[in-house]
Structures are given as C-alpha cells and as structure tokens.
Amino acid sequence: MIKIENLCKTYEVGGEIVKALDYATLQIDDGEFVSIIGPSGSGKSTLMNMIGCLDVADEGAYYLDGAAIEEYSDDQLAGIRNDKIGFVFQNFNLLSKLTAWENVELPLIYQRVAKKEREDRVSDALEQVKLLERKSHKPMELSGGQQQRVAIARALVTNPSIILADEPTGNLDTKTGEEIMELFHALHAKGNTIVLITHDEHVADQAERKIRILDGKVQEVEL
C-alpha cells in the first residue's frame, strides 16, 4: 500500500527553481491498477521516482507498506526497490550483455536467493510473459515487445508490492503496445498492484483509477 502525504520536491534548473511536486497527496491500495497521467513536465516522472524510491522528497511523507521511506539510507532504499518494487521502463533498460534469463535473474541475485529457487522463479516469470523459449537470447536479438516482456518478467520475479511502469508502451507500435497492456491486465487479474505512468489518455483509461497530475499538483479522476 502506498500512502503519500504533502510531498514536495523542487529542482534548480539553470538558476530557475522548478516545483516538480507541490504538496502531492495520494493513496494506492494493494491490488489496484492505477494510472498516473499528465503532460511532460507535469511532475509525473518525479512522482514516479518518489514512488519507486529512486529519490527522496524535500518535504512530506511517503509510507510504503507502512514504512516511512524518507528515513531510509541509500542502501536501505536499494533494498526496498529490490524487495517491493518492480520497474518497467519506457526504453526497457535491460542489460545488453546479459541474456533474457540472466536479466530476469539479477534482482534475485541481489536478494541472495539460492540458485535452485532462482531457477524456479525465473522460469516461472518468463513463462508468465510467454518468453521461456527465448531465455538464452540477448536483448539485441529480441524485438521491442519481447524486450519489454523480459523487463516485465524481471519486475514481477521478486513478487513486488507494486509494479511501477513508466510509459511501458511508449517505444512500441500500437499492436505490440496492446499486447503489453493485455499482459498488465492479466497480472492485475492475478492480484498484482500496478501503477502505470503515461501521457496517453487511451492507455490511462484502461486502469481502474486515473490520477491526473499537473504542475506538480495531484488531481484525482475516478473512472
């Protein structure tokens, strides 16, 4: 469960102070499928970084499963990202030198999961995204849609509290994008919490709930 209260974050860009988050407050419950929508520069990337524990706020509070994130050290944040968050990025962000299997395995290695269990879980995750037969391929040998599915397998292999997807269909053609969205629906149906960040209304509409963000302010739009 995500609980954000009055989160503020300012950046200094070229001597100008930009308020990326302006007292943002929101809550996402377990098992929800939520989309966060806003135009570029609206602060949605900053919000995603906060939710994903990649960055900490200047002000306000963020509770992830009841834990106050702003008190955590860099290494503790790395642990939280490892255990509770599964990232899916617009440009996939797979390690090009590793195979699909090794990419999916990596977060489990960081969790120090034993080899035998790793094998079971990686093969299960690749099965869920229907890419098990491509496990020995490197990212360069896979299509964009396939790469994104490997990234999704990597995100869900640790059984995270939330899957955080940042424009997951942004670099894909419409048909492949739809396939990826179907995959998210399937994962949601299995009980995963999904937070989808996008600027595309059509994509955002597919979520249970839409959170709109503009100039760092959160406006909720129920569906």
Binding site: D74, D75, A78, G79, R81, N82, L95, L106, P107, Y110
Partner: peptide
C-alpha cells in the same frame, strides 16, 4: 553509467 543505474534501480547496493 546506464548499466549502473539499471542495477541500482533493481536493487544493487553500493557495496555490490
């Protein structure tokens, strides 16, 4: 740099 970013995002600690 990017590889390091990805590794850190998915949970690599400093020490790792």
């Amino acid at each position: 740099t990017r590889e390091i970013g990805i590794r850190k995002a998915i949970g690599a600690r400093k020490q790792t």
